[in-house]
């Protein structure tokens, strides 16, 4: 490669143009590009008022409202022990599916994804940045929820609480893939409607506020098969120390695999 000629021209008098670099690839290290993209993703998430509402404010309101006001027929000894893991599942769904899905759909609509496709940031780098942004957001969400739970409702984690970390990662994979599946295949408006619609459905049948076995029988089967309850229940098992059901984790991973494969196959960048 020694014959590659590097030409760097610099600004001349009266010439309104940038210098050009010829003969050498001018790409930044992927880590630098991905970090810059992650920062931009986070900035944009925090600037979208509805994004902050759905990812931070609503989960906090759910937690406070239900923990303080509604007596829950609980399997756990205290409402907070039942509620907090479920609300963490809500937080994962809101940032992974709703926020990521809707933002990505509009980026596709505005042609931003296509424009990025001609930049040195590789597509896997864009995905990595989006995942990093979602994970950062989740750390903030969970920190706020745990803080409120611990300070105002006396919540304490069980010894097995560390298990929640891989479960949150798995849940993020599942719901982020679902969000990207919608964003890459549907029109932006359709993604907006379906992500918000699914969010409400998942809240209702995810066993978040009410244990699934308290549901009417015809709702119990779909509730047990769909991923929200699997995520909420396994988080509950980890955080209360009652043990994580392997079936729940397997179900979650199965859905994650299906969503990821479907998203990879159907995702349209433009």
């Amino acid at each position: 490669m020694s014959q590659i000629r590097q030409t760097v021209t610099t600004g001349g008098p009266g010439v309104p143009a940038p210098a050009i670099i010829a003969g050498v690839p001018n790409a930044a290290p992927p880590s630098q590009a991905i970090l810059a993209q992650t920062r931009a993703e986070l900035t944009m998430t925090l600037r979208r008022g509805e994004g902050v509402l759905v990812t931070i404010i609503m989960p906090v309101l759910f937690l406070v409202f239900f923990a303080a006001l509604i007596p829950i027929p609980s399997i756990a000894s205290r409402p907070i022990d039942f509620l907090l893991p479920g609300i963490i599942a809500v937080a994962v769904m809101s940032s992974g599916m709703v926020s990521l899905g809707i933002a990505t759909a509009y980026e596709r609509y505005y042609g931003v994804l296509k424009r990025l496709g001609a930049s040195p940031l590789p597509r896997w780098g864009l995905l990595a940045a989006k995942v990093l942004a979602v994970l950062t957001l989740e750390v903030a969400q969970i920190a706020v929820l745990v803080f409120i739970g611990a300070v105002f409702f006396g919540w304490r984690p069980a010894a097995s609480a560390w298990l929640a970390v891989p479960i949150v990662l798995l849940g993020t994979l599942t719901f982020a893939s679902l969000g990207l599946l919608m964003a890459g295949a549907l029109r932006a408006e359709a993604t907006l409607a379906s992500a918000n619609g699914l969010y409400v459905v998942f809240l209702a049948i995810g066993g978040i506020f009410l244990p699934v076995d308290h549901f009417p029988p015809f709702l119990q089967v779909p509730a047990q098969i769909l991923p929200p309850a699997a995520l909420a229940d396994s988080l509950r098992g980890a955080l209360t120390g009652r043990g994580v059901a392997g079936a729940d984790v397997l179900l979650l991973a199965l859905w994650g695999g299906i969503f990821l494969a479907a998203a990879t196959r159907t995702f349209k960048w433009e």
Binding site: I21, N26, T43, G111, A118, P120, P122
Partner: peptide, 20 residues
């Protein structure tokens, strides 16, 4: 991957993030 760092592109659609 080798080509993109050496080209500049203006598409018909500007492709700018509206909120940035």
């Amino acid at each position: 991957e080798r080509l993109k760092p050496r080209i500049g592109v203006m598409l018909q659609q500007d492709g700018l993030y509206p909120s940035l």
